[in-house]
Computed example of a mutant assay.
Amino acid sequence: MDKHQENPIPSKEQIILYPKFKNLNMNQIILINTFEQCLDIQSEILQIPVLGFDSESKPTFKKGETNTGPHLIQLASHHNAYLFKVNPETLSFLATILSSRQQLKVGFGLKNDLHLFRKLNIELNHYIDLAKRFKSFGIENALGVKNAMALLFHVNFPKSKRMSTSNWSKQVLSPEQMDYAAADAYAALLIYEELLRLGKLNPE
């Protein structure tokens, strides 16, 4: 096992000095609300073998408040990020992709997603939780997207608390929300491919 150093994760001070992560452009980020919009992208998205994956939920701030999410589900390729507002129409389309054993979904911290999807009667199949795939670097604990991007690519991947705790149940998302949501799914895809290239993952 090649650890290089005692703690291979760059420090916060180091990460701040790294160049900022370059996300997909806004014209590559597609917000989907209706089944008609799903059909528009159906042929292209069903041909993508590996999809970066994430979801967002409206945060709960009060004790005992029930999480009603997910409110947004993100899937990303190298060319586009597809942001699906969760409703019966989009879920009927997404169920096929999420439960597919042909299309691989890669993301971080998927335990909560699995729980939320089961409440919607959707089983997430053929997926990799990348958070726990860094043991070969000497990292035993789960790793987040920001540190994974810093470790593998030496870039500063911004994680805004203001965005992560924003209202994801809104029908119309702000450009900042769309950029944030797309980045998480797109970064997961890049991280998966880099781990594969480095021989740190077995092809699935």
Rank of each mutant, 00 (worst) to 15 (best):
H4G: 11
Q5K: 13
E6K: 13
N7W: 10
P8R: 12
P8V: 11
P8M: 13
P10E: 08
L17V: 15
P19H: 08
N23M: 09
L24D: 06
M26G: 07
M26Q: 15
N27F: 12
Q28R: 14
I29Q: 03
I30S: 05
I30G: 04
N33V: 10
N33G: 11
T34C: 10
Q37P: 05
Q37W: 05
Q37A: 11
C38V: 04
C38F: 06
Q42S: 12
I45L: 12
P49Y: 07
V50R: 01
V50P: 00
G52T: 09
F53P: 01
D54E: 10
D54M: 03
S57L: 07
K58N: 15
K58H: 10
T60Y: 06
T68D: 05
T68H: 14
G69L: 01
P70S: 06
H71V: 00
L72V: 00
I73M: 03
I73C: 02
A76Y: 02
A76C: 08
H79T: 14
H79C: 13
A81P: 01
A81Q: 02
V86D: 00
N87M: 11
E89S: 13
E89A: 15
T90M: 07
L94K: 01
T96H: 13
R101M: 08
R101Y: 09
Q102W: 12
L104E: 04
V106F: 03
V106H: 00
V106W: 01
F108T: 01
L110Y: 01
L110Q: 01
N112D: 09
H115A: 11
R118K: 11
L120G: 05
I122G: 05
H126T: 06
Y127K: 13
I128W: 00
D129S: 04
A131R: 02
K132A: 07
F137M: 09
E140R: 13
A142N: 11
G144I: 07
V145D: 00
V145I: 13
K146S: 07
A148P: 02
A148W: 02
A150G: 03
L151P: 01
H154R: 15
N156V: 08
N156F: 04
F157G: 00
K159L: 14
S160Q: 13
M163N: 04
T165L: 10
N167C: 10
S169R: 09
V172W: 08
L173M: 06
S174I: 07
E176K: 11
Q177D: 04
D179Q: 12
Y180Q: 04
Y180A: 02
A181W: 00
A182C: 13
A183H: 03
L189R: 03
L189E: 03
L195A: 10
L198F: 07
K200Y: 12
P203Q: 10
E204Q: 14
